[in-house]
Amino acid sequence: MTLEIVGISVLWLFLFGYIIVASIDFGAGFFSAYSEIANKKHVIHQVIQRYLSPVWEVTNVFLVFFFVGMVGFFPKTAYYYGTILLVPASISIILLAIRGSYYAFSTYGIKDNKAYMFLYGMTGVFIPASLSIVLTISEGGFVRMDGGEPALLYKQLFVSPFTWSVVLLSLTSVLYISANFLTYYANAAGDDRARDLLRKYALVWSGPTILSALVIIYQLKHHNAEHYTKMMDVSWMFVVSFLFFVLSLYLLIKKRYFGWSFISLVLQYAFAFYAYGISHYPYLLYPYLTIYDSFTNRTMAVALVIAFIAGLFLLVPSLFLLLKLFLFDKKYVKGQV
């Protein structure tokens, strides 16, 4: 295994971690805002707030970790993606700012404000949409080289059906992942009404996620044939992913083992996400940038890997403590502490 592959695997793992924890956070925010507007606040608001409050900053760090690590292992991405993403990433920053400040001002400071709540709920949908653009751009076809300078083709990006399919998948996934997890959490909290409502949301969004994923695979055949062919080479992973989807959905329908249902869902996404990532190899940006020509030097890569391993020794026990206190602590989950 080369250092390039070690590097991208570590980053891909963190991006996956971000996608799961951030989806829970974004979706929860959306449901929270929706329940406020649909007058179902009393049902699910409490459960969501108890889960979200202690962990949101941690969620954000996953993202920062990913992009700092990306520039560390693959400095040329700073040049390519930094130049291309000026506008899209700035939009994401602003949306993240609205979201972060909601936590600061509403959860810790003053009583809920309806307009802010609405804005916050909408960021839960718009942030994944704006971030998903990066994956779309990475497929190629939306960047032009102007005398060695990459430039984003806004119009092509905006009118491409492929872009919108990816956006759709990101939205449906956020809502599905989040509803599934919160069903488990509400069940653990012994809040049956919240659980039933969230379970209903999860069931509603399960179909659209799979449909939009299939549409994307179909569109990729035309948009980037090379990537599509490589995806077919790892098609077994998509099959495994689908089996986990069926298992997760089955448990949800049967109203049993909500925890296992969520674990199956994580595995479903893990297989699909890794199959996508592996078939994307070696390109970071079709057709200009691969993990090999953007890679940093060997010395720095080894230093980063060592720092990463040392960091994990610090982080894993701390994360475990956080989860133990807030996620697996029955008394806290039930609101008795």
Partner: peptide, 18 residues
Amino acid sequence: SLPLFMETFAFFFEAIFL
């Protein structure tokens, strides 16, 4: 990039305990 990378770890650590 090494200290930049380490900074995220430090902040991660801080955020968890905060």
